[in-house]
Design a protein around this nucleic acid. Structure first.
Lengths: 113, 113
DNA sequence: GTAGTAGTACGAAAATACTCGTACAAGTTG
DNA sequence: CAACTTGTACGAGTATTTTCGTACTACTAC
């Protein structure tokens, strides 16, 4: 085991396995405008790192944001890891491209309005 | 005007214009399992004709089916025409491929479960 | 015209989702 | 440790969706 790669990553919060992702559930999650915005921002503006919900800059109550991130995670759209105090999110790019090829392209190509 | 082509088609029921289709609205419509099944059946099993809701063979109350077809139409997923007594449906294949390329491929490629 | 048929319109009940206030938890700083 | 910061958990209120019974409409057959 390479010590350099053995970065102590916090564990993933509960999420569906890639093979259990359901298109209907993913679409239900993305049907909510704010959640679509979150996914699109992770897809287009994100780097290789996870982001806490403050990174998105939404002017909404904190508890509302928590709710929407949880819906995205339970639908399988994002991973979430507990970094100490924070719960950071990342799009499940590989899983989504594998299970639903073209979906992310669709999100990226659609203007946000 | 060619008399052969001048088939008297019943008018379309109210629906959003192709340019007004919104990805979130389409996804919300398709997030419901029965509606996803309707769209998939129109995509895979349908010919060039419109189909009345009896064609689908669902064992649900008639009023529930009416509701789901209306949701699909108002989201822009299907056309509906009034053929005398019947209200027949057809997938908006061209409009959806034009506005959301890849979406129908995604629906076709996903198993229904 | 009357009965039968296929489907829509309306309305209400139940389930689900969204919003957000408050309380709480885990760090960080002094 | 106490105050502060950044978020999550819980729960309630509201709004939206889903479901489906009933009434109705338009057509067909007799």
């Amino acid at each position: 085991m390479d010590a350099v790669d053995a970065v102590e990553l916090p564990p993933l919060l509960p999420e569906p396995a890639a093979n259990d992702l359901r298109l209907e559930a993913v679409m239900a999650a993305l049907a909510e405008p704010l959640r679509m915005t979150i996914a699109r921002k992770l897809l287009l503006d994100s780097d290789e790192f996870d982001h806490p919900c403050g990174w998105f800059g939404f002017d909404r109550p904190k508890s509302s944001l928590t709710h929407h991130f949880k819906v995205l995670r339970e639908a399988g759209v994002i991973h979430q890891r507990q970094y100490g105090l924070e719960r950071r999110s990342r799009l499940r790019v590989d899983d989504l491209n594998d299970r639903f090829p073209g979906l992310l392209d669709l999100i990226a190509a659609t203007e946000s309005r």
